[in-house]
Design a protein around this nucleic acid. Structure first.
Lengths: 228, 228
DNA sequence: ATTTATTGATAGTAATACTATCTTTTTTTT
DNA sequence: AAAAAAAAGATAGTATTACTATCAATAAAT
């Protein structure tokens, strides 16, 4: 027996909910594997179809195109992080402790007990890190934002922003700080792995924990109480 | 009469130096216009060829592919910012003033007197903002990094890192802060323009100055002298 | 005036990003 | 268990992309 959590994603992001069928789950599972392995640019529905012994046409019945599929995966990830954060900060009252837990949860999201058999959270996290802002760095941003395709990310940022305000109500830019914490996390991990002269993270394999230290160092200084 | 500065870019980034011919300059000029207008995904050598009344084959004699062309443009931009920063901080001694000038130069790089007729710095800056980390978020990063394709960016970060150390020698992560300042600048401007709930920038059109304020606020707090 | 380098014109290929249609299989309803 | 409906598979086809190759025309350099 187990307690299953089901993450749901903006209905505009799929033509047919992939989590409700065997083929759909296979699409999710193997798209994550393939994108993680070869990168988003090299990923095609044809290759995915071959991988899962299905056809392009069948995949197109679930997702309009690979960009929408990527958005689906990002949304799933953001929702999953949202859940993790809420869960892990439950019953914690001190906002500064909450923030620390959030940063930890976010950076180690992959190590948390995977909840869903067809999603490899670790690979998905790596995609989020490696594919950077490809979810929203397109010409369709404005349209997609108006459809709510980034609302999971926005709500994540808002949640953190609220905690920042609790820690230090005089801090002027809680939203900017919150969004930067998420962006910076991924970026600095990516730099550590690929362009290491851009930061001070040395230990390979422990890059995530090192970045966590950096983020804690930054936030502690930034949010120390004092009138500005 | 005028003083021309010529920016040179890693030789691995082109097959034939575009700055040395009429066609080459047209390629640079119009690729910037097209990428800025339609986004990098929609940009193709065919469309560019049509735009400049040339042929695909001719463009391929300059650049191996559009990704390398993008890298060329990013490098040109980073070199240009490098130049601007050195120029604008000349004779300034106080490192904290230097850093302020750097942030200002970087964010307003587009408004500085354009130095080169065939490069629209403003459009190029917009590309750097909009196309985010597409220069290095690919499966070829490691290879490209080893070829020095990001060295202009790295040297920019190192320069700022040195100044950060001068301001506060006890600050633990000057490289991470420096790289984050650049990334955060672009990111926050992008958010202001497209997903405004992710930060506190309201005024459309003045987004760049608003982001400058945020960055100054962050760095001032982070680098205040005090033992940690 | 001749050689050399550069560009243009054209053609062709494999892969990508789809759309359409029809058949077979699986699932649901009765 | 039969009939209806939904999902998936098989196949074909199109326009575009991302190139490579070849040859002719033009411009620049010696």
């Amino acid at each position: 027996m187990s307690v299953a959590i089901k993450i749901s994603v903006n209905v505009g992001l799929y033509l047919k909910e992939p989590q409700n069928s065997t083929l759909g789950k296979k699409i999710l599972k193997n798209s994550i594997i393939l994108i993680d392995k070869n990168g988003f640019e090299a990923f095609t529905f044809k290759k995915l179809a071959e991988e899962i012994h299905s056809t392009e046409a069948s995949i197109y019945r679930y997702f309009q195109n690979k960009h929408i599929l990527l958005l689906y995966l990002f949304n799933w990830y953001w929702e999953w992080v949202n859940y993790l954060i809420i869960f892990n900060t439950k019953n914690i009252t001190a906002p500064s402790v909450k923030l620390k837990i959030i940063l930890h949860s976010f950076l180690h999201a992959q190590k948390e007990n995977p909840s869903t058999e067809f999603i490899n959270e670790s690979a998905l996290h790596n995609i989020v890190i490696s594919e950077g802002g490809k979810a929203y760095h397109t010409k369709m941003v404005d349209d997609e934002n108006s459809k709510g395709f980034f609302s999971s990310y926005i709500s994540l940022v808002n949640y953190v922003s609220k905690i920042i305000k609790e820690i230090n109500p005089t801090f002027k830019y809680p939203n900017a700080l919150a969004s930067n914490l998420f962006e910076m996390s991924n970026n600095q991990v990516y730099f550590a792995r690929h362009i290491p002269s851009l930061n001070e993270v040395s230990k390979k394999g422990e890059d995530v924990s090192e970045v966590e230290k950096i983020l804690n160092y930054f936030t502690e200084i930034l949010l120390e109480k004092r009138l500005k």
